[in-house]
Design a protein around this nucleic acid. Sequence first.
DNA 1: ATTGAAAGAGTCTCAGT
DNA 2: ACTGAGACTCTTTCAAT
Lengths: 156, 156
Amino acid sequence: MQNKLHLDKLDYQIIQEMMVNAEVSYADLGKKLFVSGGTIHVRIKKLEDSGIVQGRRLAVDLKALGYDVVAFIGIYLEKSSMYDAVAKELKKIPQVVRVNYTTGNYGMFIEIVCKDIQQLRYVLHDELQKIKGIDRTETIISLEESFSRNVIIATD
Amino acid sequence: MQNKLHLDKLDYQIIQEMMVNAEVSYADLGKKLFVSGGTIHVRIKKLEDSGIVQGRRLAVDLKALGYDVVAFIGIYLEKSSMYDAVAKELKKIPQVVRVNYTTGNYGMFIEIVCKDIQQLRYVLHDELQKIKGIDRTETIISLEESFSRNVIIATD
DNA sequence: ATTGAAAGAGTCTCAGT
DNA sequence: ACTGAGACTCTTTCAAT
């Protein structure tokens, strides 16, 4: 997990390509980027050893799996010092997929994914409200996701 | 992309495991779930054909790559009918990674990832403000991400 | 650091159950 | 629908540059 590591254009190109599609073979990706498959392999190994590349994940269409309801929730904390304790409780709720400590109106900002509105209601009303340190919450429900993608990294 | 497809416990288990780590071999995953590697292969093929599994992605530590600044932005639209046009413009901005049409105060809610505060300022001030249809925006900056994970799917 | 080839490991297909 | 084995492809290692 060292961090002082010089990345060149090829490294950035490999990351950019494989963030979108990690199924491409090293030989094919090498052809596209004008190096050998062996070089792709060495670079990816370097990126994995340095911790920049953390692994490969299956990309799943949650909507097709029945997880239709995405909501963003702003949380007002009683005291901002309670952030860590509240985050720990939130992690126990399976539907909570992301927790951020934030500036602005809310002390924290979270994202939850549910199978339906009933489950959302349950999480909001029964799960969140009983966590000590949460004052009140504001819910933003996503009616439609236009797009979701990785940041487009600069390749130089 | 057919959608009426019965998934059993094994399918859900495979998805759950490989959402976290897609590098495991079919033989090893089969051992863990008490079936053969061939069966894992058939199930994954079925999930890919149905569109539930969309591919494999490289998981990258954006912070280690220098993308330190994550912000959520609530956008007030002049008219909600302008949503599609605004979304299209937002897609042209590389730092915008997610766009949602939402209920609540904001007509839309987006996420952006930047290399530093200067870049955030540029996106907020120069890029967003010149999009027709955006009335005003409210920015929530993430000071720290407690965690980010996939939804924990029910395996039955 | 990159290459190309050989060794090793994994995926994919298929006949049998 | 699952299994195990064979064919095939990819990753990984390594000697040479």
